[in-house]
């Protein structure tokens, strides 16, 4: 129940954000992909190099007017998986990588930290992208650069009906709980009947939606409901160029080493 309600809250929060201002959605998308490619191509042994990539989510959140605390908190959800899988690195990589005073740090711990950082940074970059531009804006942008129309329509349809069907599932779960005499989870037999019922309601809704859409002249494509389409401006070109240059610098030059030499 909690999971469904949390999902509904996330969706409502997402629907609140949109491409009202700032960068073109396509520009931010290209920047995000370039950032992820550059960041993920840094070897896990080069932790100091990777650390510099942590600047991007902070800077981009500030530029697009987002609350970085929320982005940072959001990036913690993917952490348990990275913590678990990465834990094997200190076990298998025991060679000493560096010494801090008398403390020897193994290669495994360095790569473990890198995995944790990679996990958090990739989610942060994703959250900056989607929180800043909204799901609809991204779909439209990707459609303009060649994503099949059928796929973008499908994505927008699923996105549109998620809230509706999640609410349907919440109502059914609440009704079941009220009559469930304290049982937390459904037995498999009850789950089958529950989801089967949800499926029948879904189909009934889909048929009604299809008839309504056909009556309004649906031609296989979702109508644009953004009154003004955001244009690609000089600002987008400059931001994209500067971002790509920064990522190349961070990827190919070890800035930490320069600092070490200076100090």
């Amino acid at each position: 129940m909690e999971r469904i309600e949390k999902a509904i809250t996330s969706l409502q929060r997402m629907q609140g954000s949109g491409p009202e201002s700032g960068l073109h959605p396509l520009c931010l998308f290209v920047i995000t992909v370039a950032y992820l490619v550059a960041m993920l191509s840094v070897p896990v042994s080069a932790f100091t190099m990777l650390l510099w990539f942590a600047l991007y989510p902070v800077v981009m959140a500030a530029l697009t007017g987002l609350d970085f605390t929320r982005i940072f908190t959001g990036s913690l959800i993917a952490l348990p998986f990275a913590l678990l899988i990465g834990l094997f690195n200190p076990i298998y990589q025991t060679r000493t990588a560096l010494r801090v005073g008398s403390l020897a740090i193994s290669e495994g711990w360095i790569s473990y930290l890198s995995i944790i950082l990679r996990s958090m940074l990739s989610v942060q970059a994703l959250l900056v992208l989607v929180s800043g531009k909204g799901f609809t804006g991204l779909c439209r942008s990707l459609e303009s650069v060649g994503m099949p129309r059928l796929l973008s329509t499908q994505l927008l349809m699923v996105y549109r009906y998620l809230t509706v069907l999640l609410q349907e599932a919440v109502d059914m779960t609440r009704a079941r709980r009220a009559r469930g005499y304290g049982r937390r989870h459904l037995s498999m037999k009850m789950w089958g009947a529950f989801c089967g019922q949800l499926f029948l309601r879904t189909v009934a809704r889909a048929e009604a939606v299809n008839r309504a859409m056909l009556a309004r002249g649906f031609d296989g494509r979702m109508p644009r409901y953004q009154p003004v389409r955001q244009r690609w401006t000089l600002r987008d070109t400059l931001t994209l160029g500067a971002s790509l240059a920064c990522f190349a610098l961070l990827r190919f030059v070890d800035i930490s080493r320069i600092f070490t030499h200076l100090l």
Partner: peptide
């Protein structure tokens, strides 16, 4: 292509079904 509304709502169904756990 006329399946798109059904596919869209079915996607939402699977998403909702994923949120309902079984014992």
């Amino acid at each position: 292509e006329n399946m798109v509304p059904l596919m869209g709502v079915m996607g939402a169904f699977v998403f909702a079904a994923q949120m309902v756990n079984f014992a």
